[in-house]
Design a protein around this nucleic acid. Structure first.
Lengths: 230, 230
DNA sequence: GCGGATTTTTACGCGATTTTTACGACCCAA
DNA sequence: TTGGGTCGTAAAAATCGCGTAAAAATCCGC
């Protein structure tokens, strides 16, 4: 996963400075807003993984910021507040906040609560990862790393599999020898164009019903190879 | 939605009484446990929507309770604790807790945090969250940490068990050597790939009827291992 | 501190995989 | 026609990864 993105909506400069140091030091990408209005725009444009919002903002009330966010996004919201009153907490949480931290707060606690928030969204995205490629009889299940021709499962060696998936990722488009070598063998072997031919032959024998007259793994003479598309 | 089910793991009688009144008054169905061991069983049998756990339990440490729960379920866990120390919070949250409330706490705040937890699971609702894994003769009871082959119970060492459950959690998918090392031995041992082979051999001898021709614990050459799925 | 269980090391044979080498077919331009 | 280039195929050689066993070190309960 790339570095998580955090939007911080906070008007007090010293708190911003403190959190900037803490969060960037932990590998988060931080974007700051100093008012509620700015904050709403920032969340819209940055698509963050977590939002941290202070309740005491100069323009809009923090509670109102949360309500507006909840109209269109489920991004985790952590509230920072000087008010430690119980009714403030309840109001913020019921408005849609996911957590509430009272000032003064410790950096490590806030970081831990951010990790909790990230955990939650990590689980949610897990559902949408049905990754499969189908083309005629050929079927590549990226998620389970399995390849089928019709009903029959085909075993591929690591290089064969990597080569195939590289072609799958650019299905329909031509991939040059250079690209394939770089993707499969790494940037150091960019001259052994022979490897590609040898392994393309392997793949054709395993996947094509008539390896000499390929239906899926097509040669683009002088350029590279192409995986046929619908 | 029917009334949400809550399991409370707490040894102090006065807190239990207080929460019983509060929660049942709000329409929650409450089940109580007074020790960590009881709590784990209760969560397993009641399938609650939220678990509330005190850190100071008579038998098992509350942190350990959270870890054991996280081996097989994603149910939201809210920690209650007399210790307000920051490092306690971080430990609990990183062990898998979703929220941390320090004593003394107000009823309305706790209720609000329960509502947050319920909101989270409402979205990801119907995940078939079974505490047991079955595949042919092989049967893994995550809740009680027991493993069977047919009728016979098999004893596994801690590492063997962790390795197996890691594969169970990704059943059907390939798990790379790296992942297994990180999950079982921790992020520091990410280069000793032998370990995995040695222990996979152990597991096969204990679980497979024909260790040389495994039916469950499959090798993906050059990549890692995979627990067969239906 | 003892003894058994468990984990960590070490070593090695075998088979799968990758790399290398060789060669014939084909296309196109000189 | 011919010769250099690209491509496909086959098979040999080198390498690597896997499974296995067993010894050494460590942990843990008594």
């Amino acid at each position: 996963m790339p570095d998580p993105v955090v939007v911080l909506i906070e008007d007090e400069p010293q708190i911003r400075r403190f959190l900037r140091a803490t969060l960037t030091g932990q590998g988060y990408r931080l974007f700051e807003a100093t008012s509620g209005a700015d904050g709403l725009v920032e969340v819209g444009s940055r698509q963050p993984d977590v939002v941290i919002v202070d309740l005491g903002l100069p323009d809009i009330d923090g509670i109102e910021v949360i309500r507006r966010l909840r109209e269109w996004t489920d991004v985790p919201v952590i509230v920072l507040s000087a008010r430690g009153q119980e009714r403030d907490k309840v109001t913020a949480l019921d408005a849609g906040a996911d957590d509430y931290v009272s000032k003064p707060f410790g950096a490590s606690e806030l970081l831990a609560r951010i990790r909790v928030a990230l955990r939650h969204t990590a689980g949610a995205s897990h559902e949408a990862d049905e990754a499969a490629f189908k083309l005629g009889e050929l079927q590549v299940d990226l998620l389970h790393r399995r390849v089928f021709v019709g009903e029959r499962e085909v075993h591929l060696t690591p290089i064969e599999y990597k080569l195939l998936t590289t072609l799958v990722q650019h299905a329909g488009k031509v991939v040059t020898h250079q690209q394939l070598l770089r993707e499969v063998w790494g940037p150091t072997h960019t001259d052994q164009a022979h490897y590609v031919r040898v392994y393309m032959a392997h793949l054709r024998h395993k996947l094509e019903s008539e390896p000499a007259r390929p239906r899926y793994l097509l040669t683009e003479p002088g350029v590279g190879y192409r995986l046929a598309a619908e």
